[in-house]
Design a protein around this nucleic acid. Structure first.
Length: 235
DNA sequence: GCGACAG
DNA sequence: ATCTTGTCGC
């Protein structure tokens, strides 16, 4: 059985087939936007894995942009649909994320993904994939780089630097907090880079990561804990 | 050929 | 991603 095959043992795609899917879908991504200027709602998506990697929980939280409070949320529990292969991340988390998105009652105006969009070796990261598949505007906010080089950014919140790969600007390195490690913002679908950065800044009033990501992260961890088995005190 | 490599 | 102890700071 292929090493990247899901633990469930389902056939799945081969690495070559997954790459082919990305190549086929890439032309469908709208990397210009400009995207919603004043979205009323923004969604955060994240996935948590069980220690053994056999189980995962995906969560989507929808926040009111005016208050940054959660107005809707949904989760899904399942098995990784693909092994962890840098560059083929979407094939691992997409099924679970889509299942969670389907359970939403509010249609978010923007998806903020935990990972990259254009800042990807084949210019089609998770944010692009999710955007194209759902048709919704999407951006990627990564905690660490996958591709590209940069200089800076300055030390203050709001300072940015271009993320360049193979001679092209694929994203922006953004400082969301004074003196704190920056995040990597890239376009996914139906959004422009300037607007993407603006939306990320608008959702990071206090911490390094967007409130969308933080709330989704909390929710998928709680969901995984509940699915793995309720924690119980030993004393 | 050898490392690096979103989460 | 997840496993992990202490530590520094508001």
């Amino acid at each position: 059985m292929p090493q990247w095959d899901g633990a469930a043992g389902s056939p799945g795609l081969t690495v070559a087939e997954a790459v082919a899917v990305q190549d086929r879908l890439r032309p469908r991504a709208d990397l210009v936007g400009p995207g919603p200027r004043r979205p009323a709602t923004v969604a955060g998506l994240d996935v948590a894995y069980a220690p053994d990697g056999d189980l995962l929980a995906a969560a989507v939280t929808v926040l009111d942009t005016a208050t940054l409070t959660v107005v809707d949320h949904a989760v899904s529990v399942g098995r990784p649909a693909f092994g962890y292969v840098p560059g083929l991340f979407a094939f691992r988390e997409l099924p679970a994320l889509l299942a969670a998105l389907d359970r939403l009652t509010v249609r978010p105006e923007l998806l903020v993904c935990d990972g990259h969009g254009l800042a990807h070796p084949r210019r089609f990261g998770l944010a692009c994939h999710l955007g194209v598949v759902t048709g919704l505007p999407a951006i990627g906010v990564g905690k660490t780089p996958l591709v590209g080089t940069w200089t800076g950014p300055g030390p203050r919140r709001g300072d940015t630097a271009e993320l360049v790969d193979a001679g092209e600007v694929v994203g922006r390195v953004l400082r969301t907090r004074d003196g704190v490690k920056p995040v990597f913002v890239s376009v996914g679908h139906r959004m422009g880079l300037d607007n993407a950065v603006a939306q990320v800044l608008a959702s990071t009033p206090r911490y390094r990561l967007p409130e969308t990501t933080r709330t989704a992260d909390r929710l998928c961890r709680e969901t995984l804990a509940a699915a793995t088995g309720p924690a119980r005190a030993t004393g």
